[in-house]
Design a protein around this nucleic acid. Structure first.
Lengths: 228, 228
DNA sequence: CCTACCGATCGGTAGG
DNA sequence: CCTACCGATCGGTAGG
């Protein structure tokens, strides 16, 4: 239908971009639901009203669709988190909005991209992984910076007997906190039931578990500190 | 080779049990490495020195192999955790051994079963899921009991302004702590490099992040408590 | 547990 | 983007 001379690397029509976006969105939904391997290209084509071979007009192969889903998730997520952080009035609010935003990214309807990244990372070819990691590093850096501030302020985690400057400690805190939150993709499910814990409640409980209301005066450490 | 009249539901020879165990072990290794879907029955057969059709002498289908892998993991894990808890001299030691043991279960060589459960849960048919969940509930109960004690003692998490009796709080704490630990399957990798963080160090850092050395006197809550 | 095999599915392509 | 199709792979089975 598009009569433009599309040489694939040249410009794409807005119409083509739309179709491509539809494929990415529906693929994310299907991957999240059944997994990358269990989703066939035929499933994806059917979800956007195409015939089985047509997705390959937009993507070289199935793996490129997966890569596109993950990139979309990281870009959307980065923007959402950056915006949220910019509006937070305090350090405590930064953490709260970080957690709440991440839960939205993971669990909002139509936002299945990052869950797919978490679930189907193994299915991504090694070459593609490198490209995605580069974007993911920027995403993680937003977390890292905020968590470092929280550690320095002495309001994150159960103790203050760590060196708040130590990158290793900040990184460990990030991996544990993000791990706890990201792992909710395996057990949390939104439900429109009155008594059910919604994303606000989930975020509030998470924040309360990880963040102190008031800074602690450092307690004498009972565990030996390895060196230095 | 086995000349016994094996009617499949009747008794199995020790030799058959051995072969079955070998299939489970090698399947776990392959599933962990490549994922359930990406592992073929031919891969599994080759790993134990069988021909492609022979695993079906021991298992009705591929999904039953997955189920067996998960069951094996839960049984082994339950025993390891139960034993470890029984030997812990104090409440603090209980948490430390719980965390360290879980890391062993997730990352020890030859202990890929639970990682497969975490990674490939989606691939398990619904009927099988129910059976596995029954065993998993007992496993989680060991954690739940210990975490409840820790919350009551006021040494777990960043705050004490929760009701230590509230089951919902204990459950949330368990999901967050186990989530953080279980999520390490996505980023932690054992390496025999001198400077590399080993499982002991990983456990120590985790414990230090989640557990206070000394109980806190309850701080006045700044967040509104929803009801009651 | 092997041999020999099948039916179905699936990613991907040629040619318009 | 459709039509028509292919080559390969894969889970699973019959029959010994």
């Amino acid at each position: 239908m598009p009569d433009s001379t599309h040489t694939k690397t040249a410009q794409v029509t807005p119409e083509e971009a739309n179709r491509r976006q539809a494929l990415i969105r529906q693929s994310a939904r299907l991957f999240r639901e059944k997994g990358y391997d269990a989703t066939t290209v035929r499933d994806i084509a059917a979800a956007v009203g195409m015939r089985s071979g047509s997705p390959f007009y937009h993507f070289k192969n199935k793996q490129e669709i997966l890569k596109a889903v993950m990139e979309e998730g990281l870009h959307q997520g980065f923007e959402r988190i950056e915006t949220a952080l910019a509006q937070a009035p305090s350090l405590q609010a930064k953490f709260q909005t970080l957690v709440r935003t991440q839960y939205g990214i993971l669990h909002d309807e139509g936002s299945e991209f990052i869950a797919v990244l978490l679930y189907d990372w193994r299915s991504l070819p090694a070459e593609y992984k490198q490209e995605i990691i580069r974007v993911k590093d920027r995403y993680d850096a937003l977390w890292q910076a905020t968590l470092q501030e929280l550690l320095q302020a002495g309001v994150l985690g159960a103790n203050t007997d760590h060196d708040p400057e130590a990158v290793a400690d900040v990184k460990m805190a990030r991996l544990l906190v993000m791990g706890a939150i990201n792992f909710t993709v395996t057990w949390y499910k939104q439900q429109p039931v009155p008594g059910h814990m919604d994303l606000d409640a989930l975020a509030e409980r998470t924040v309360r578990f990880f963040m102190r209301q008031h800074p602690l005066t450092p307690t004498p450490s009972k565990l030996g500190t390895p060196k230095g």
